[in-house]
């Protein structure tokens, strides 16, 4: 049994005439990082809304097909149970912060407080997450005074403290500078090591190459390609579906025009390996 399964899903929002998802079938395993990629408007965020139950629980519209989490149809799940199972991180870190708490520590404790977890347990869990994410220096600061990158890390911490099994992260770095982006991805990697299933919407293809296990390429409401990250991001055909391959893969294809490479690299470390061998003449 798949952990999360979409079988022949089609969906149309209550407003609008066109289906935004068209016969999508996917099967997601527990503990892997899935990157949803594709042009804007392809249906990536709609797939996120479906997996977290907002479709059909909040957005009505026309939903066909089956969407199963642990074998149980999404329509039968209670939203409260889904909310405990899944954490959702907003694109804009300024939206996620509650605005009602004076310190980062309290902000991270907010969700547990609402569940009426006992105070000593809250303190223990918040302290653990702060340590895990390296947020010690920020814990007494006012969340409103943090930079965008710091806020996004606090947002991730406030979700992780709830210990959801599944994390849905929709373009976490689009507003961030390169340094903050890297910090956010390091945290995503920590979550992965903790066995979380992560569904990530992201445009920065070199980061996907580095961190995702699987890639789902969506185009015009359909799954255009899916598979292992390396297989998809080294396949020139992906370029026909509204994405750019990593710079390293593009370089690989450029080199293949007049010489043979046994492998198209997708990450920096693969590129160093492939081209070092090529230069030493060990390729042929």
């Amino acid at each position: 049994m798949s952990y999360i399964e979409l079988k022949g899903i089609s969906y149309k929002y209550p407003v609008g005439d066109e289906k935004v998802l068209k016969d999508i079938s996917l099967s997601l395993e527990k503990g892997k990082v899935y990157a949803l990629i594709g042009a804007n408007g392809a249906g990536k965020t709609t797939i996120c809304n479906l997996i977290r139950g907002f479709i059909p629980h909040f957005f009505k519209g026309d939903l066909d097909g089956e969407m199963l989490i642990e074998g149980r149809d999404i329509r039968e799940w209670e939203m409260g149970d889904l909310a405990q199972k899944m954490g959702y991180i907003f694109q804009n870190p300024f939206t996620q912060i509650s605005g009602t708490k004076d310190t980062v520590f309290e902000e991270i404790a907010f969700g547990l407080e609402n569940l009426r977890v006992e105070v000593p347990v809250i303190k223990e869990r918040v302290a653990e997450i702060i340590k895990l994410f390296g947020l010690e220096s920020l814990q007494e600061k006012n969340p409103q005074q943090l930079s965008g990158g710091q806020r996004q890390r606090v947002s991730l911490a406030s979700i992780m403290v709830m210990d959801p099994e599944i994390l849905i992260i929709d373009e976490p770095t689009s507003q961030l500078d390169p340094q903050a982006t890297e910090e956010v991805f390091k945290i995503i990697n920590i979550m992965k090591q903790r066995g979380k299933t992560i569904i990530l919407v992201e445009h920065k293809i070199e980061l996907i190459a580095e961190y995702a296990d699987r890639v789902i390429l969506v185009e015009d409401g359909k799954v255009a390609m899916k598979g292992k990250t390396k297989d998809i991001l080294s396949d020139i055909k992906a370029m026909d579906h509204g994405i750019l391959l990593p710079q390293y893969a593009l370089l690989g294809y450029e080199m293949q025009k007049n010489d043979r490479l046994h492998e198209i690299p997708v990450t920096e470390s693969e590129a160093i390996g492939v081209f070092t061998k090529w230069m030493a003449g060990k390729e042929n």
């Binding site: 042009a39 804007n40 445009h203």
Partner: peptide, 8 residues
Amino acid sequence: AGQDYPTM
């Protein structure tokens, strides 16, 4: 920020 490849 947040733009896809065709938009870039």
